[in-house]
Structure formats: structure tokens, C-alpha cells
Design a protein around this nucleic acid. Structure first.
Length: 902
DNA sequence: GAGCACTGC
């Protein structure tokens, strides 16, 4: 009588086995689940309670539904042994993801044996173009002579640093040993804190220096006197004439010329403000805010009235705003909705020589807008001396206007011989300056946090022995600064130096442009910088130490001449400067993943991205890789045109993988959770880990760890912070960066707003932001549907489970490892993982890792993955014979996986 | 059992 068909489902998850029954009730047509004891569970085909899609017009990825459904139907048929028509009738639901929340999935028994293969997706519009070249893709290098002394030093690194590192390791081992012995002997109630050990306190000595804050020197001149004393004032009329006669002008304004604050005012005064807004872009937010503040004081208005600023989370402008300072990224996003820049009568791209990606994109967009608007839009580009002719040529051979700067002369010293060890040389130079030169603070440029800390410690140690042997030596205050440092500590470098003492600031690149410190008379420049070299083929970031460019070297030495004549000690030879250094730093756009930029261009209606009018065109392969990525994400169709999904993705200010995940999460019914996690992923690392308190910090982090991995760990952190009512003390108690958390909250709010805009666009009445209420698996599945490209399997070279913990990426088969900071580090029972980024340091590491079920890849990325057929060899076994490729060679059969090695 | 230049939307 009862025609129910029940199937036994064995579920192996996290090492536990559960047994349940699954079937279809013939009377109701509902799918049902029984637990191991035969009790009836909740129906699981009903997708209604899940989040809804963007209304009924959402068309989704065109081929996905059918492919996926076919596969699923097949699986169900095999598992259930039910007639085709019956299941298909049941599966005929609107929502392609109706099944995603089912507790049990068919075919669980095969979980351990799933093999995943790449489909070898090549976008039809790129067929043939990807051939071969990608193998030869090399990231650009800054140094001109690869075998020069600088490049050699950069590659070998500092011997001093490695020795210091070894010593510290040894010290830590000793401390650890002592701690263990103490624990064994003494009573366990007594805390044996590593932090209080003598060794640690010695290292700590320099950190305890602190001083009361008193700020800067105020000028006694009136605002008008100050304005008229600036070099740019002398050429005011001349400059306005040139701008009047030409649509585009390049201005070479040296530091201290007053161009940033004055030119906008001149333009407003001469009537440009009546036809539209006078805009001025800055590469950094702090610059936009502080300049706007200064100018509003000069104009004598409230900030936000006639003079305002706009940055990502803050729009301080009104309808009466005439002069607007903004970040370049902000203007770039405005170009999405208003490519002709109709709001503006004149736009000044300030600090253009810094060549941020946003400025580079704006170069081409604004040049076109100026040409289209025929005289009603003007463009000013400010640049350093070195590129002015290149800039002029690019902007239709426009005039170049020079404004002298107001800085003091800087005497430059080079070393006679290349320095063997730049850290040691830097330390010695600082000590030398302090002992034998007249007063004036010192600024040292190093490449990273570790170098800076070691350098600080060594100088403090050396100084303390010096004080003892020579009482006449004045005190040297040692101050580190780098971006990842908490802001309270950063502000210490601005405190004026007490009389009779000297300050040495040891900084990264942050002091090159972002931060200006008063009172610097001496600059020590070893000539190196840490840069990100992005490998487009592997999708891997790596931080490498490189020689700086001439422009950078000059920028650094210029930092000594801001308050008086200064001296710059370059720890390299004059020959190295002249012959080995590149003239300019390689623009960011040539070193970066371009998928977000390409998506924006496509969203602006620019079809031929490869031939877009960049000033420095990125390598074709980098653009093609971006196009391919966008195609895989369904942001582009098979002709390379923007899809609806792609359009929606472009509304989000983040990389495409994230925006895709965000959009997909609505269908999965967990958009709230995904929104929080994405916000957390788009801010700098939230976990604070001072090196003297590592163990405490690690313990604090473990409280948040989720067994599935780091994505849900981040969610935990945010929710706990929210529970604490966004408390600052909660952050410091749990070793969490408050600055990052607050930014994450801002991003979350912004994401919510964008989602709301999408809802309105789709005419939806209910919000698409829905919570899955603790269903972890759904959240991870949503991420898989966007991040399927970033997955790895735990296998060794021979294709077996790797005992050492090596994974291999599914796309390029690159060996990678779980980063020690991950919640999954050294955890067993993990076959497949999804990661957020790859970073190359000592090893290739996956950062932010979560374990996944391999079949989700086939289910949610059917265009990209397929399950290996039973009669085929294991993919890993085949790798011994076959080269896995995204078939770049054979246009005719581009859906085939790989090509035999002949 | 290890290491995170710097921005921006």
C-alpha cells in the first residue's frame, strides 16, 4: 500500500558516522528524512524558508541550472533507484538552490572517494588568445640590472637579521625550557609568565620610553600673509591663463609650493565653481581630510559647506560645496555612474606621479571625458619632474607648468663600496650621527616590521653600553613606526624631541609619503623596499625585498629638508644609484590582480579592455587572466559582455570573488553571515600579536576558533565583539585590533546599503539580507560558490594523502600549506579546503582556510569542475603521465581537461 | 610551528 522508497544514508562528517533514511512520500510528494531510529525528521525540499532571490527577473547563470540539475538528478536516480519522472517532477522547483539546505545528500557513501577534475574552462571570446603565453608570464621587476649589487643584496637579505633571528629563537627556546622546568618544580598556582622573564624585559626596554605630547609650531602670520608667501602665489595669474587656454595642463609642483591648497581656491575665485564643482583627488584619505580642513580655514567656512571632502565612509559635502577634495578611488567609482563627470567643471589629479591604480584608470577616463565635453571640463595633473614630459605627451601634448618648491637643500652622501649588510650599516650610521653630528632628528628607512624591531633593540642595547662608558653622550630616543602598529603607538613619533636629546625614527615606506615628521635633519636610506609581486598565473602574492627607484630615493632624501638644510646618507654607491636603479617605481597597475579594475571598466561600457588607453598598459596576459576569472564567475558571458551578475558585482567595492560570494549568499539564505565575514576579510588582520605576548595572544585567539576553519572564526570574532557592544576594552582583552574591527563594521554597513540598493533595483519589498541562524554548512557552501577557484586537496606528489600536511591547489597543482595562524593548522581529517589568499613567504601558504566537501565544488561550480568518471583513473594518479592544463593549446576541444605529454 | 610594504573603494 505504501509506495515509499527509503534509502539508507550513511554520513561521515568530521570523523563521526551517522545513519539516516531518506525518501519520498508518494502521497504528499514530499521528501522526508528519518534518523537512525526511524523517527521522521523535517522535510527538506522546501526552499521557501531560505533567503529569496532578487525577485523573479533574476536570470542567474545561463547554463548552470540545467547542468547542475542533470547531475543531481542522476545522482538521485542512482541513489534512490526511483523512476526518472517521479524525481524530476519533484525537482521541478523554481529555486536552483532549493536543495542546498538538505541535511542529507545522496551518495554520501562515496564521500571518501570523490575525485574532482577541472573542466578546463576557456571563455569562448578568449579562445586561442590564452595559448602558451601564460607560461612565460613574469612579474615586473623594478631594478634595471638584475645582477647589480643592489639586487644581489636584496635577494640575499641581511646577515645581521638572520643572526638576530637565530639568537632570538635560541633565547625563546631557553625561556621556554626555563618555564617548563619552573612549572615542574614550583607550585602550579604561581604563574610562570614568559613575558616577565629577564630576557624579554631587556628587549622591552626601548618600548617604555614615553613622553607627554605637545603639538606643532603655529605660524603667527595671518592666513592671508601665509597664502601670499607661498611660491604658487607669484605665478597665480600666469597659471590661470594657461588653464583657461588649455583643456588639460600638467603642473610640476615641488613640495612646499602650495599647489594642493591654493590652486583649487584660485580656480574657485576665478569662476570655475559656478559651472560645476572644483575637485581635487588625493591618493590617501588622511590627505583629503587634512587638506580640506586647511582650505576651509583659509576660505573661512565650515568644513562641508563651500569646501568639503568625500572619502569612502564619509561624505562631508553639501549642495553648496564648490571645492571638493576626495580620494582618487572615490572619483573612480563615480565614473561608473557618471562617465562624463557632469558634476564637475574642473578636476585636479594631485600626486599623480604616485600612480595608484585609481589614478591610472582616471587618466584614461578623464582624458576621454575632457575630449567629449569639449571645453566644459578641464583637467589638471600634478606630477614630479621626472615624468612631466611623459604625462604631457599622454594628455594630448598639453603644456607643462613649473612651480618651484620651498624646501631646504639636502646634502647627499653615498658609500664608497657597496654595503655588505644594510641593517648593520644603518645601525652604525645612526650611532655615528648621534655621537658626532649637531642636533637634529634621524629618519631611517627599513623594509618591514621585523627589521625595524631588531634595529630598535640593537640601537637601544648599543646606546646603553655607550651611556655607561661615556657620560657626555646625550640620550637617543628610538621610535619605530609601521602601518600595522596600533595608532596610539604611532602617534608617539610626532611628539617634539625634548631639548638636549635626539630622536631616531625607524620606519617603513609609511614615512616616505603618508607621514611627515617635523624636525628630521638626517635621513638614512639603505635603498630597499618590500613590494608585493603578484603572480597572475598562480594567483599568489609574495612580498619581496627590492631596490628602490631613483624617484623613491629622491623622495626619501627630500624628507631631510623640510625644516632646514639636511643630510641624507645613502647606504649604496653613487654608481648603484645611477646605473642600477630604475627611474620610476613600476606603477601599481602593472603589479596587481586586475580583475576588479577590468570589471569596473566593463561596467562602464568599455568593451575592449585590452586596448583601453592606459598610460602604461598592463601585460595582455594579466588582462586576459582577469577576463577569464570574470567569465568563470559568470560576470561576463561567452562573448565577453557584462552579465547582470557582473553588473551587480561591480556595485561592490571589493574583489570579484567576494562580490560574487555576496550575491550568491542571498540564494543560500545566509547573506547576513556572509556579509559579516566578507567585511572581516576586507580589513587588515584583526588579530593583534605583539611578539612579547605571543602565547597569550594565541590563547585568546583559540577561543574564537571554529572547527570548520577561519571563515567562521572571523564570524565568531565579530559576533562576540557585537555582544560586547563594540567595546574597546573587549578588543584589548582579546588581542583584537579595534581599528580593524571598526573598519569591518563600516564595511558591513556599506555592504548592507548596497544590498538595499540592489533590492530596490529589483523591486523587492523584503530585504535580501537574511540569516541562516547558525547553519554553518550553508555559509561555507555560499563561499564555495564564489571561491571555488581557490581550493586545494591534501595530497603529496604521488597523489596520496600527504602526511606532512601539504596541499595542492586544484587549479595549478601548486604545493601549498595551511598557514600556522589558521584554526585548521595541524588538524587532521581534512581532505579539501577553500582558502582566501595565497601568500609566498618561506613557503607557499594559504591564508584564511576552511574545510569543504569536494562535491560542493561540482555542485556549485559545474562550469568549472566535474566529478571524475568511474572508469577513469584517479586524477592524481594521472598527473604522473598527464600535464594538467586549462587547455590553452587546442581551440577545437577547449572543454577537455588536459593534453598528454609527448 | 610562523611572519604580515603601503594604499584605496
Amino acid at each position: 500500500m505504501n509506495e515509499e522508497v527509503w534509502v539508507k544514508v550513511i554520513r561521515i562528517y568530521d570523523g563521526k558516522i551517522s545513519l539516516s533514511m531518506k525518501g519520498i512520500d508518494q502521497r504528499t510528494g514530499e521528501e522526508q528524512v528519518k534518523d537512525g531510529q526511524g523517527r521522521l525528521g523535517e522535510s527538506c525540499t522546501n526552499g521557501e524558508s531560505r533567503g529569496k532571490r532578487y525577485g523573479d527577473t533574476y536570470d542567474g547563470p545561463p547554463k548552470r541550472k540545467s547542468t547542475m540539475d542533470a547531475w543531481e538528478l542522476n545522482q538521485m536516480r542512482q541513489a534512490y533507484g526511483v523512476k526518472r519522472s517521479r524525481i524530476e517532477g519533484k525537482r521541478d522547483v523554481e529555486d536552483p538552490f532549493a536543495e542546498v539546505d538538505s541535511e542529507e545528500e545522496p551518495n554520501k557513501e562515496e564521500e571518501e572517494d570523490v575525485e574532482i577534475q577541472l573542466n578546463g574552462t576557456v571563455p569562448p571570446f578568449l579562445a586561442g588568445k590564452l595559448a602558451g603565453n601564460s607560461k612565460t608570464y613574469q612579474p615586473q621587476k623594478a631594478a634595471r640590472i638584475p645582477d647589480g649589487s643592489l639586487e644581489r643584496i636584496a635577494q640575499n637579505g641581511s646577515r645581521f637579521m638572520s643572526d638576530a633571528r637565530e639568537k632570538k629563537m635560541e633565547l625563546r627556546k631557553q625561556v621556554e625550557r626555563a618555564r617548563r622546568e619552573k612549572e615542574r618544580d614550583a607550585d602550579p598556582m604561581k604563574s610562570s609568565d614568559v613575558d616577565s622573564s629577564a630576557a624579554a624585559t631587556a628587549i622591552q626596554a626601548w618600548k617604555r620610553q614615553s613622553r607627554s605630547a605637545t603639538y606643532g609650531i603655529r605660524s603667527h602670520k595671518s592666513i592671508r600673509e601665509q597664502r601670499e608667501s607661498l611660491p604658487v602665489f607669484a605665478v597665480r595669474d600666469q597659471l590661470l591663463n594657461i588653464i583657461k587656454e588649455h583643456d588639460m595642463t600638467v603642473i610640476v609642483g615641488e613640495t612646499g609650493s602650495g599647489k594642493t591648497t591654493q590652486i583649487t581656491q584660485y580656480l574657485a575665485e576665478s569662476g570655475y565653481g559656478e559651472k560645476g564643482i572644483v575637485a581635487c583627488t588625493q591618493p590617501r584619505r588622511v590627505a583629503a581630510i587634512s587638506v580640506a580642513k586647511r582650505v576651509s580655514e583659509e576660505v573661512g567656512c565650515k568644513l562641508g559647506d563651500e569646501v568639503g571632502y568625500q572619502i569612502r565612509f564619509e561624505d562631508c559635502t553639501t549642495t553648496s560645496t564648490i571645492i571638493k577634495y576626495m580620494t582618487d578611488g572615490m572619483l573612480e567609482r563615480e565614473a561608473l555612474v557618471d562617465p562624463d563627470m557632469l558634476k564637475y567643471s574642473i578636476i585636479m589629479l594631485d600626486e599623480a606621479h604616485e600612480r595608484t591604480v585609481a589614478t591610472d584608470v582616471l587618466f584614461a577616463l578623464l582624458r576621454d571625458a575632457v575630449r567629449r565635453r569639449k571645453g566644459s571640463l578641464k583637467l589638471i595633473i600634478t606630477s614630479a619632474t621626472l615624468d612631466s614630459s611623459k604625462f604631457s605627451h599622454y594628455f594630448d601634448d598639453c603644456p607643462v607648468f613649473h612651480i618651484e618648491g620651498r624646501t631646504f637643500p639636502v646634502k647627499i652622501y653615498y658609500t664608497k663600496q657597496p654595503e655588505k649588510d644594510y641593517i648593520e650599516a644603518a645601525i652604525d650610521t645612526v650611532m655615528d650621527i648621534h655621537v658626532s653630528n649637531p642636533p637634529g632628528d634621524i629618519l631611517v628607512f627599513l623594509t618591514g616590521r621585523e627589521e625595524i624591531e631588531t634595529c630598535c633593540e640593537t640601537i637601544v642595547q648599543k646606546m646603553s653600553t655607550l651611556y655607561k662608558s661615556d657620560a657626555s653622550v646625550s640620550e637617543l630616543i628610538v621610535l619605530p613606526i609601521y602601518s600595522a602598529m596600533p595608532s596610539e603607538m604611532q602617534s608617539r613619533i610626532f611628539e617634539p624631541t625634548p631639548k638636549g636629546k635626539r630622536k631616531v625614527v625607524i620606519a617603513t615606506n609609511i614615512a616616505e609619503t603618508s607621514i611627515t615628521i617635523d624636525g628630521i635633519y638626517y635621513v638614512v636610506d639603505p635603498g630597499f623596499v618590500k613590494v608585493n609581486a603578484y603572480d597572475a598565473k598562480l594567483g599568489m602574492d609574495s612580498l619581496i625585498v627590492q631596490p628602490i627607484s631613483k624617484a623613491q630615493a629622491d623622495q626619501r632624501s627630500g624628507r631631510a629638508g623640510r625644516t632646514g638644510p639636511g643630510i641624507c646618507y645613502r647606504l649604496y654607491t653613487k654608481k648603484a644609484y645611477e646605473r642600477e636603479m630604475a627611474a620610476n617605481t613600476v606603477p601599481e597597475i602593472l603589479r596587481q590582480n586586475l580583475s576588479n579594475t577590468v570589471l569596473m571598466l566593463k561596467a562602464m561600457g568599455i568593451e575592449d579592455v585590452v586596448h583601453f588607453g592606459f598610460m602604461d598598459r598592463p601585460k595582455e596576459q594579466a588582462i586576459l587572466a582577469a577576463l577569464q576569472e570574470l567569465y568563470i564567475l559568470d560576470a561576463l558571458d561567452s562573448d565577453g559582455r557584462l552579465t547582470r551578475t557582473g553588473k551587480y558585482m561591480s556595485y561592490f567595492p571589493m574583489e570579484p570573488l567576494m562580490s560574487k560570494t555576496m550575491i550568491q549568499s542571498v540564494d543560500f539564505g545566509c547573506s547576513y553571515e556572509v556579509m559579516v565575514i566578507i567585511a572581516m576579510l576586507s580589513v587588515p588582520d584583526v588579530f593583534y600579536r605583539p611578539r612579547e605576548q605571543r602565547e597569550k595572544a594565541d590563547k585568546a585567539k583559540q577561543q574564537f576558533d571554529d572547527y570548520t576553519g577561519d571563515h567562521l572564526t572571523l564570524l565568531n570574532v565579530y559576533e562576540k565583539w557585537e555582544d560586547s557592544e563594540f567595546s574597546r576594552t573587549w578588543c584589548s582583552d582579546h588581542y583584537v585590533h579595534e581599528k580593524s574591527m571598526r573598519k569591518a563594521r563600516d564595511v558591513k554597513i556599506q555592504l548592507g546599503k548596497i544590498m538595499g540598493q540592489l533590492d530596490r533595483r529589483e523591486g523587492r519589498r523584503d530585504s535580501s539580507i537574511v540569516s541562516c541562524k547558525g547553519d554553518k554548512e550553508i555559509i561555507i557552501k555560499a563561499f564555495v560558490s564564489g571561491y571555488f577557484k581557490n581550493c586545494a586537496k591534501r595530497v603529496n606528489n604521488a597523489g596520496h594523502y600527504d602526511e606532512e600536511g601539504t596541499f595542492r591547489t586544484l587549479v595549478e597543482n601548486t604545493p601549498v600549506h595551511i598557514h600556522p595562524s589558521s584554526a585548521l593548522f595541524r588538524k587532521g581529517g581534512i581532505d579539501y579546503v577553500m582558502y582566501h589568499t595565497l601568500i609566498l613567504t618561506n613557503q607557499e601558504y594559504m591564508q584564511c582556510v576552511t574545510k569543504i566537501d569536494a562535491r560542493w565544488l561540482v555542485k556549485y561550480a559545474p562550469r568549472f569542475y566535474k566529478q571524475a568518471a568511474e572508469n577513469e583513473l584517479s586524477l592524481m594518479k594521472k598527473r604522473e603521465k598527464i600535464e594538467p592544463l586549462w587547455n590553452r593549446f587546442d581551440q577545437g576541444q577547449e572543454w577537455r581537461l588536459s593534453r598528454g605529454r609527448r
